[in-house]
């Protein structure tokens, strides 16, 4: 069941901390509330891929080596409250919500764009708009400008909205599931794809194949 505005409000002030949705800072709830959604704002830190001679992300390297590749390849920008980050046509950038978000165990959420920005060609996530029950931290935006005009993005503008779905209480909250990689992050975090356990197994199989002379 998707929560309506009364139900979202009710969850934000629920006397039971276990059932409460936490979103802070709540800068102006009157502007942020919709019939079944709550707008969220753009944070201050951004990451974009630099041009480099790195040909591809090689998951067969060691995790530390891939992390080093990522560190070298990502440019980090921290914008002041009054300075825009300009997203150029065709560019992809990571950012995060200004808000810290905490979702109770019987709620899942979806992060969606706002039509105001969609009309300018801004997409706020590539594929990962789902927020698990028990999530704590800042949500990641995967920003793309699919128009032909650069888009200046000021920290604090409402570029996304969250809608909430109530269900049965999970016993596997996001921060307790195996292989969780982004729990508790309060800033923009780049991908940790190489920490997925499948890659460890594939790396091992590759090494064994090499040793066996195959």
């Amino acid at each position: 069941m998707i929560l309506n505005e009364h139900q979202i409000l009710s969850r934000l002030v629920d006397p039971d901390p276990e059932r409460r949705i936490i979103i802070t800072p709540l800068v102006n709830p009157e502007e942020q509330f919709g019939p079944t959604s709550l707008d969220v704002r753009l944070g201050t830190d951004f990451q974009v891929l630099k041009r480099s001679n790195l040909t591809h992300w090689d998951p067969m390297k060691t995790p530390d080596a891939i992390q080093a590749d990522l560190d070298l390849s990502m440019a980090h920008f921290k914008m002041k409250a009054t300075d825009p980050f300009v997203l150029h046509p065709g560019e992809f950038a990571l950012a995060s919500t200004l808000e810290y978000v905490q979702i109770p165990l019987d709620i899942a959420a979806r992060l969606e764009g706002r039509s105001t920005w969609g009309r300018l060609g801004l997409q706020i996530h590539a594929t990962a708009g789902f927020v698990d029950p028990g999530f704590k931290g800042a949500l990641t935006f995967e920003l793309s400008n699919v128009s032909t005009v650069p888009i200046p993005l000021y920290p604090g503008v409402r570029i996304g909205q969250l809608c909430f779905f109530e269900g049965a209480t999970t016993r596997l909250p996001y921060d307790e599931k195996k292989c969780t990689k982004y729990s508790g992050k309060i800033s923009t975090a780049s991908s940790a794809f190489f920490r997925d356990p499948e890659y460890a197994r594939i790396r091992l199989a590759n090494q064994e194949a090499v040793l066996a002379g195959r």
């Binding site: 009364h6 409000l9 009710s10 934000l12 002030v13 629920d14 006397p15 901390p17 409460r20 936490i22 802070t24 800072p25 709540l26 800068v27 810290y100 905490q102 704590k136 508790g184 309060i186």
Partner: peptide, 22 residues
Amino acid sequence: QGVLISAVPMMVNPSQLHDTLV
């Protein structure tokens, strides 16, 4: 509670607000 502290919470007791809403 591990929550970001950029904002001072509302001064109204959440329970009161919840009761009023109900």
